[in-house]
Amino acid sequence: MPLSRRTLIAASLAALPALAPEARAQAEGQWRAITGDNGQPLPNTRLPGELVSEIGRLRGVTWIGPREASVTLFEFFDYNCPWCRAAARDLDDLVRANPDLRIGLINNPILSVQSAQAAKVALAVQRAGGSAATAGLYAAL
């Protein structure tokens, strides 16, 4: 068989199942090989370093957990996202189970005009009542 771009791609894809889970995940553009409760792979990526260093300086972050934590997890969310709503149910339990974890919730209203409106309401609540009040709104919505 002659060597061509098509045969190289086909050979590379055929080799993916033989790779270790971490290598296969990275080859597929993911950061880590993570599986859900059903054993299926979950997509995940890592932000470039130059963006990660800026996250902590964002204004309007809603904080859950201790101020001085050794681990900080940032969640970019949309109030109208069904997966974000499902994840929101677990955040309090996650912080309770991991006392050295701090979660930063960052509005990312991309799904609709209503998403942007909810994000504006959340920012107003945060200005008036701080992260605790906004975390309550987040849990309620």
Rank of each mutant, 00 (worst) to 15 (best):
A15P: 04
A15W: 05
L16S: 09
L16G: 09
P17Y: 03
P17S: 04
P17V: 05
A18Q: 05
A18E: 07
L19R: 01
L19F: 00
L19I: 01
L19C: 00
A20C: 03
A20H: 10
P21W: 04
P21R: 05
E22L: 14
E22M: 10
E22T: 12
E22H: 04
E22V: 12
A23S: 14
R24W: 05
R24H: 07
A25W: 05
A25R: 09
A25T: 06
Q26K: 15
Q26P: 05
Q26Y: 03
A27G: 02
A27R: 00
E28T: 06
E28F: 04
E28G: 11
E28I: 06
G29E: 04
G29Q: 06
Q30G: 10
Q30T: 03
Q30C: 13
Q30P: 00
W31Y: 08
W31K: 09
R32T: 05
R32D: 09
R32H: 10
R32W: 07
A33N: 02
A33K: 01
A33F: 03
T35F: 01
T35C: 02
G36Q: 01
D37W: 03
D37G: 12
D37V: 06
D37E: 11
N38M: 00
N38L: 03
G39M: 07
G39N: 10
G39W: 09
Q40M: 13
P41I: 09
L42T: 12
L42H: 03
L42R: 13
T45C: 02
T45P: 01
R46S: 06
R46Q: 14
R46P: 01
L47W: 13
L47V: 10
P48T: 07
G49F: 10
L51P: 00
L51I: 07
L51H: 09
V52T: 14
S53T: 11
S53R: 14
S53H: 02
E54C: 02
E54L: 15
I55C: 11
G56W: 11
G56V: 09
G56C: 09
R57I: 02
L58C: 02
G60R: 10
G60P: 12
G60S: 08
G60Y: 09
G60M: 10
V61F: 09
V61L: 07
T62N: 11
W63A: 05
I64M: 15
I64N: 01
I64Q: 12
G65T: 03
G65Q: 04
G65R: 06
G65C: 06
P66L: 07
P66H: 08
E68M: 07
E68I: 05
E68T: 12
E68S: 14
A69Y: 09
A69L: 12
A69S: 13
S70H: 12
S70V: 03
V71M: 04
V71C: 01
T72Y: 04
T72I: 07
T72S: 14
L73W: 02
L73V: 11
L73A: 13
F74T: 13
F74Y: 15
E75S: 08
E75K: 08
E75R: 06
F76W: 05
F76H: 04
F77N: 03
F77E: 05
